[in-house]
Amino acid sequence: MSVATAFFYLFSFVTIASSAMVITGRNPVHSVLFLIVAFVSSAGLFLLAGAEFLAMLLVVVYVGAVMVLFLFVVMMLDVDFAELQKSAKRYLPLGGLVALVVLAELALVVGSWTVAPQAVLSTPTPGNLSNTAALGQVLYTQYVYLFQAAGFVLLTAMIGAIVLTLHHRPNVKRQDISAQNARTRASAIENKQVPSRTGVPVP
């Protein structure tokens, strides 16, 4: 057994085991942590298959961004997962039926599957280029239009999120660093003579 095979089985086992822990775990924080383990070991599998770009993407995007977001959501929202799992059991018969129908349809489609000759030709053959270099060569040349279009979709999503969630309340006090730094003793402190037993009006 070569080293690569050994690592393949190691990563596969860890991926499957941690995936199982994700769905059986009672504590949602543990589930998210196990999901991170599953992603990292899947990245290892990608590396073994020679897809180093996908592996890095998985680590950077999913582990770095998406999972942290999940962790935030799980910690901020008080969701009773035990209750959710109970109701999931209730929907099992209907859900299982739907899954069976979809499976049958997929089998129908796959049964008539013939790989088109063009599809085989259109798989990239980058020669001695790495995946990342091959992607870099087409992203801004052949696919520049689609790449920019995707950029506009993301811009729209950003603007949309701001429009729908940002509230400018007039009475909220905000931090103004330049104003803080410009404060002097004279502008901040005022000496008042307070007569005994009367007090001063507070602005």
């Binding site: 129908l108 489609v109 008539s112 599957w113 013939t114 790989v115 088109a116 000759p117 063009q118 599809a119 085989v120 030709l121 259109s122």
Partner: peptide, 29 residues
């Protein structure tokens, strides 16, 4: 994705060329 899988093309003309006159089940799906 089904169309790409069965025709091997993403451009409309390429799909039309791959289908020819006899669309198979996957293409129709």
């Amino acid at each position: 994705s089904l169309l790409y899988g069965f025709s091997g093309a993403v451009s409309f003309a390429g799909i039309a060329g791959a289908i020819g006159g006899h669309p198979n089940m996957g293409v129709i799906f």
